[in-house]
Nucleic acid binder design. Structure first.
Length: 825
RNA sequence: GGGCGAGUGGCGGAAUUGGUAUACGCGAUGGACUUAAAAUCCAUUGGUCUUAAUAACCUUGAGGGUUCAAGUCCCUCCUCGCCCACCA
């Protein structure tokens, strides 16, 4: 008998799968389609890591399972090649990003094949290829033509290390999420996409899809819809009006001042001459601070009195107007009323000695007293006091009534605000899609005509970013100088490029028709494949890529380029694989585990695949543990030995004493396994699916040892075949090899998922739990579906239970069919 | 500060959603095979408890409650993780 040698088996089958295009999905097939999407990687120089391995392995389990079930499965792969990581890698290694991308892509493809992923490589895409980004540019122009892309001078987040502007979503704790550099503010004219126009649809659309709750919640929170009111505060002795957004109009009687953001456009006019110097100083001060500096000290609320007063529209009281940097210019109206019922406002009032009164108190009397005495800040809903005719109303009631009252006098309107901002779509970098716009002195920004797409990235020797906020493309005259498509007069090309999120916002569509040069995707193929049935990715993309690509799909559906607005029917997120020490893998910590090292250590891809599936539930963040790998290897070895032993002893094998009981037992074991694995796979419980395969193997060993002579050869054969088909989802190489060893010429992958015999699932006998006073006193093996009286009789006859029940008064008996009987004595 | 989630053996983790807690794997211990080791196979493995049972009691972060029955439901508290955060 040969030893289990994963290396030779795996390379043999990988070559065959690749040569014979096993995983090429068929366009417009009569079979039902099923699209399994996993996030495509940046083709970084370091190659595939354990995180990719987990994500793609889980996707592969599903793809193989669905294929066996008879679906026409599309499981595609490509490369998200534009963006800073590739550019930084190319700069560091002094090669062109084009070459770096090409080399790295090859390496990735090779590595993914080594792991046995059933990917359709015929549809491979590369977002940095002109034949691809031509359509990214074309899609951008659709945004432009529908007034969804516009230019605006904005104070943007600027990464001084990467020398580029960033979207809000890319700034984490005031730092660039990629390089961890402190982000600065910079005023630049930028291209923006109107994602805010889709804020409501992006929230509402979540109802039509099946996303993990925490993913949907996170998107909803990120969009941050809050309903409230916009209130007009007239300025005393002036025609000016300051508008204020609030969700707590019920606290308006507590308004003790108005507070404007330093950037608020009315600040100048509201500042009286004698305060001008200090106020200007303060504004200058805040502008020089980064967001992080501004947030360093949440306790100290700096600010200045401007000198003017506003009139509270509800009671005509005069209240002073301040500026303070804790008020955000780009949320709501950039102004708030300061009141005692908001933690931050209350701190500001206290620190600037502004007198305030309480207008909402809790029901609890003791707590109410504390609130009135201003010992405690009360920020929740309660009941109104000091509020004229509104006294006694609940906060909720008051919000309706007060708003209506102010609306009737044209002093307020209903308003919904969003935390979401428009998407800053310009980057000042070389390695991205050029924005296909020409600036004409007469016609302004003009779309590049479709026939001139793609606007190709010029070949250059230096693509280092610049400090001045201009793209390196601006230095290349031959690129910049062009003519206006309308008037043919000299004009200049846009030199900003798109963010790395552009290509990935629609990449899944290109898989449906990856080589089309007439259209971004053929409508007929689109109709067949769209939308994606299952999408697996990282939690970290929830408010970036996932939100962006939903936005694109929503827009494209609106202009009839897509059949429906939601691109992904199901979204799940896999957990992160940490280093063996339980912290994030990083080179500096030296705790990086490389999947290819595992392969070359002799374990093989099948063991590794099982290990990443078995180690924990798929969505749990977990530390890598190489002992799991030893276990899954041992398991495969046991499968190998059992089946090989069967095959080699086949010739001399004689079932001497065939017993239908044994044969049925074998059938039941296999049947139960199929049923269990199927249930688990449908719920993505890969770890327990693998566990039940292991459990079944243990049973097979046992029955092989004890009852081998009672079972016919064919029935062993059938049992092993069924076992291998299920195993092929997880460990395809060894399954193929053993399938062949069992005597098959064709691939195991052309098999069908085993059908479950429902009759066999019904137990011939059940183990009943016998409790006395809720305590387990033993079990009883009985025929199924016996009623309470029959079971009671059986229990009373049993010697074992006598001591518990004799001389006891049974007060009550609880009975659950086929499950349990409980005597309360 | 807000939102979401978690806490089960020496370890990774199971538990059909209220019905035998600790499946499966790792590790450990003992045995078989071997000159020996590795590999493999067999057995044991939550605690009181060193041996035995169809024995008893205890055990799912802590405390209380509901129930015939709680890892699972409710209340209070503790700890940890993730996401967001001066968003009015």
């Amino acid at each position: 008998m040969t030893r289990y040698n994963p290396q030779s088996i795996e390379s043999k089958w990988q070559k065959k799968w690749s040569d014979e295009n096993y995983y090429q999905a068929e366009d417009l097939s009569k079979k039902t389609k099923y699209v399994v999407l996993v996030e495509f990687p940046y083709p970084s120089g370091t190659g595939i890591h354990l995180g990719h391995t987990r994500e793609y392995t889980l996707g592969d389990f599903l793809a193989r399972y669905k294929r066996l079930q008879g679906y026409n499965v599309l499981f595609p792969m490509g490369f998200d090649a534009f963006g800073l990581p590739t550019e930084n890698y190319a700069i560091k290694h002094q090669i062109s990003p084009v070459k770096a991308t090409k080399d790295n892509m090859k390496n990735f493809e090779k590595q993914m094949k080594l792991l046995g992923f059933s990917l359709d490589w015929s549809r491979m895409i590369n977002t940095s290829d002109p034949t691809y980004y031509r359509w990214t540019q074309w899609l951008f122009l659709q945004f432009f033509k529908h007034d969804m892309a516009y230019q605006k001078e904005v104070s943007i987040n600027w990464c001084p290390f990467c020398k580029t502007g960033l979207a809000n979503e890319e700034v984490v704790n005031g730092r660039h999420e990629r390089c961890d550099t402190l982000v600065e503010k910079k005023n630049l004219k930028q291209w923006m996409l109107r994602i805010t126009k889709y804020a409501d649809q992006l929230i509402d659309g979540l109802k039509q899809v099946d996303y993990l709750d925490k993913i949907a919640d996170q998107q909803i929170n990120w969009i941050g819809r809050s309903s409230g009111a916009k209130i007009k505060f007239k300025v005393d002795q002036s025609d000016l009006v300051v508008e204020v957004f609030t969700t707590r109009i019920d606290t308006i009687y507590s308004a003790a001042c108005l507070i404007l953001a330093p950037e608020h456009p009315l600040v100048k006019q509201l500042t009286i001459p004698q305060n001008r110097a200090v106020v200007n100083e303060y504004i200058k001060d805040t502008q020089s601070k980064s967001d992080v500096d501004r947030q360093v000290d949440h306790q100290t609320k700096t600010g200045h009195f401007l000198g003017s007063y506003a009139i509270n529209p509800i009671n005509q009281k005069l209240i002073p107007i301040y500026i303070a940097d804790f008020v955000l210019a780009n949320y709501g109206t950039g102004a708030v009323f300061g009141d005692i019922h908001d933690q931050r406002d209350a701190e500001f009032l206290k620190q600037h000695n502004i007198k305030a009164s309480v207008s909402v108190i809790p029901k609890d009397k003791e707590l109410a007293k504390k609130v009135i005495d201003q010992v405690e800040i009360f920020g929740q809903d309660g009941y109104l006091i000091n509020s004229d005719q509104f006294n006694g109303l609940s906060s909720k009631q008051a919000r309706g009534v007060i708003l209506e009252f102010l609306i009737s006098q044209d002093l307020a309107e209903e308003q919904v605000n969003y935390r979401l901002r428009d998407w800053v779509f310009s980057r000042q970098h070389y390695w991205g899609e050029p924005i296909p716009i020409i600036h004409c002195p007469v016609h302004g920004p003009v779309a590049v005509p479709e026939k001139d797409l793609p606007v190709k990235l010029p070949d250059v020797s230096s693509y280092q970013p610049t400090d001045d906020g201009k793209s390196p493309l601006s230095k290349i005259d031959s690129f910049v100088q062009t003519t206006c498509p309308i008037c043919h007069q000299p004009a200049k090309r846009e030199t900003d490029t798109m963010p790395n999120w552009a290509g990935s916002s629609w990449y899944y569509l290109r898989y449906f028709d990856s080589t089309n040069d007439k259209n971004f995707v053929d409508p007929v193929k689109l109709q067949y494949w769209y939308p994606v049935d299952f999408y697996l990715g990282g939690m970290e993309h929830t408010t970036l890529h996932l939100l962006y690509s939903r936005f694109w799909a929503n827009f494209l559906a609106d202009i009839k380029l897509l059949p429906s607005p939601e691109p992904y029917l199901v979204r799940r997120a896999q957990g992160i694989v940490l280093g063996p020490d339980g912290s994030k893998m990083s080179k500096s910590k030296g705790n990086v585990v490389n999947p290819l090292d595992i392969l070359s250590n002799g374990y093989g891809a099948d063991s590794l695949r099982l290990a990443v599936g078995f180690i924990a539930p798929y969505d749990l963040t977990t530390a890598w543990n190489s002992e799991i790998l030893a276990g899954t290897y041992r398991f495969l070895n046991r499968v190998w030995n059992l089946i090989n032993q069967f095959v080699t002893s086949k010739a001399n094998f004689k079932a001497e004493d065939i017993s239908s009981k044994s044969e049925e037992r074998l059938k039941i074991i296999i049947n139960n396994m199929v049923s269990q694995v199927e249930l688990d796979l449908n719920k993505l419980n890969f770890n327990t699916a693998i566990a039940s395969m292991m459990e079944t193997l243990n049973s097979l060993y046992k029955i092989n040892q004890e009852e081998i002579n009672h079972i016919q050869l064919e029935n062993w054969q059938i049992a092993f075949e069924t076992y291998l088909i299920v195993l092929s989802v997880f460990a395809p190489h060894i399954a193929e090899e053993l399938w062949q060893i069992l005597g098959h010429d064709s691939s195991i992958q052309l098999s069908n998922w085993p059908t479950i015999d429902r009759k066999l699932l019904i137990d011939k006998e059940v183990t009943l739990i016998v409790q006395v006073n809720g305590k387990l006193r033993g079990t009883l093996v009985i025929k199924p579906d016996l009623d309470q009286a029959q079971v009671e009789n059986l229990v009373k006859q049993e010697q074992h239970f006598k001591p518990y029940l004799e001389n006891q008064l049974i007060k009550k008996t609880v009975f659950v069919v086929n499950k349990l009987i409980n005597f309360v004595v």
